[in-house]
């Protein structure tokens, strides 16, 4: 395994009386898809927010290409090369695909006008490189299907040349064909050497594209599986806490004083 591009160790995060994350480890290597799994309230979103810089961790170490870094705000994560695509895709429905891709970083000509030609050419190049086919680059995003919108949101994040892409439930609410499109794209991101963190509830998606599955349970690591040689039942067992594996057995319940239960 090559050196991880992003490695988190001993990440803890506390919200008032709730220990949302305790001593969580996570690593992603270039060209690897890591699925982040867990039941509702397991700490997936909190971990994503830690990595994205929205809610910095209380303690723990973050290594970026073997160098310790601090991610205190979203800008820090972006500068390092971490792109996050949240569930609400943050697209402007009334603007066309090209305008959405370049929103906030438009190209302009010498006279200060928008350089639509250059933007459309680059948008086409980018979507072609992802083998994404969209009927027309000049239709409003509102007229696209859910899968196409997801793809535009992912493509938009790639314009910043990230090294790690985090996707929050990218296939939730998508149909079968559209899910396939998005999963194809995730594979292409991996093949081009990006590290991908995939948050998902859908075991079928995870088994289709993920190389490793990292399970969180009640804010702790509850297993790290190579997807290839792990059965579906083992992963589900880790998520639900019924697993008979050392990591899950060691980690108890949320260690908030006085609330320990059987």
């Amino acid at each position: 395994m090559s050196t991880p591009v992003l490695e988190l160790s001993g990440i803890s995060k506390r919200f008032g009386a709730v220990q949302a994350l305790s001593e969580v480890d996570l690593r992603v290597s270039p060209g690897e898809v890591v699925a982040l799994l867990g039941d509702n309230g397991a700490g997936k979103s909190t971990l994503v927010k830690v990595i994205a810089g929205v809610n910095p961790a209380d303690s723990g170490e973050i290594l970026w290409e073997d160098r310790p870094v601090t991610i205190a705000k979203p800008g820090d994560a972006q500068r390092l090369g971490i792109a996050t695509i949240y569930q609400d895709l943050a697209l402007c429905d009334n603007l066309d695909i090209v305008a959405n891709l370049f929103l906030g970083s438009e190209h302009t000509t010498a006279s200060g006008a928008l350089d639509e030609v250059e933007m459309e050419r680059r948008a086409r190049e980018l979507l072609d490189s992802l083998s994404v086919r969209i009927p027309s680059l000049r239709v409003p995003v509102a007229s696209l299907s859910g899968g196409q919108r997801q793809i535009i949101a992912i493509a938009r994040s790639l314009l910043g040349d990230p090294k790690v892409v985090m996707l929050d439930e990218p296939t939730a609410a998508l149909g079968v064909a559209q899910t396939a499109q998005v999963l194809d794209l995730i594979e292409r991101l991996r093949d081009s050497g990006l590290g991908v963190i995939l948050i998902s509830h859908n075991m079928a998606d995870v088994r289709a594209v993920a190389d490793r599955a990292m399970v969180l349970r009640l804010g702790r690591n509850a297993g790290d599986f190579q997807v290839e040689d792990t059965s579906y039942e083992e992963i589900v067992a880790a998520i639900t806490g019924a697993a008979d594996n050392p990591v899950a057995r060691r980690s108890g319940r949320v260690p908030v004083a006085g609330t320990e239960d059987a």
Binding site: A90, C92, N94, L95, L103, G104, T108, A113, L114
Partner: peptide, 24 residues
Amino acid sequence: RKTRYGRMVFAVGGNAEAARRAGI
């Protein structure tokens, strides 16, 4: 239609949150 300012006006009108995240 032709300037960044105009594009930003449309973006804020379409989805203010998306515009904010895009750095507008």
